[in-house]
């Protein structure tokens, strides 16, 4: 499974990458929204795990920019938003895109990695 991980907190980025690679996934990790958009345009991914608060733009901006390459269906099934700032507005916006939102920190890390790496959305 090919995963794009967009997370600017380096320790979280490295750890999540390692955790997913241990499970056999191929992970491309980037630290900014702009880099994420470049990667999405250049490669195919099965899963895009994207932090909301990035240093340059927001995770939702990344989703918007992906619309030029991905269909609504693909956006809904591939993107998973992770964030420490969940609010009802955030959840509403995510719902508009049809994407799942997970809160950082994760209570059960293994469960979450499982979710990242499963094709079917629960």
């Amino acid at each position: 499974m090919k995963v794009l991980l967009v997370e600017d907190e380096i320790l979280i980025q490295k750890s999540l990458k390692m955790l997913m690679e241990k499970r056999g996934a191929e992970v491309v990790a980037v630290s900014s929204g702009k880099d994420a958009i470049l990667e999405i345009k250049q490669q195919e991914f099965d899963r895009i795990v994207c932090d909301l608060m990035l240093t340059d733009i927001s995770g939702f901006d990344v989703i918007e920019e992906s619309k030029s390459k991905l269909s609504t269906e693909e956006i809904s099934s591939k993107f998973i938003i992770i964030t420490a700032y969940s609010s009802s507005q955030v959840i509403e916006k995510a719902n508009n895109y049809g994407c799942k939102v997970l809160n950082k920190p994760f209570e059960n890390i293994n469960e979450v990695i499982e979710i990242f790496l499963t094709n079917e959305r629960t």
Binding site: L11, S15, L16, L19, K104, P105
Partner: peptide
């Protein structure tokens, strides 16, 4: 809380990996 919980989460994840 949000500023702190990100780095804390990072520590938790990497400690998890090291423990393994």
């Amino acid at each position: 809380r949000h500023e702190l919980s990100n780095p804390l989460f990072g520590i938790q994840l990497s400690a998890n990996l090291l423990a393994e």
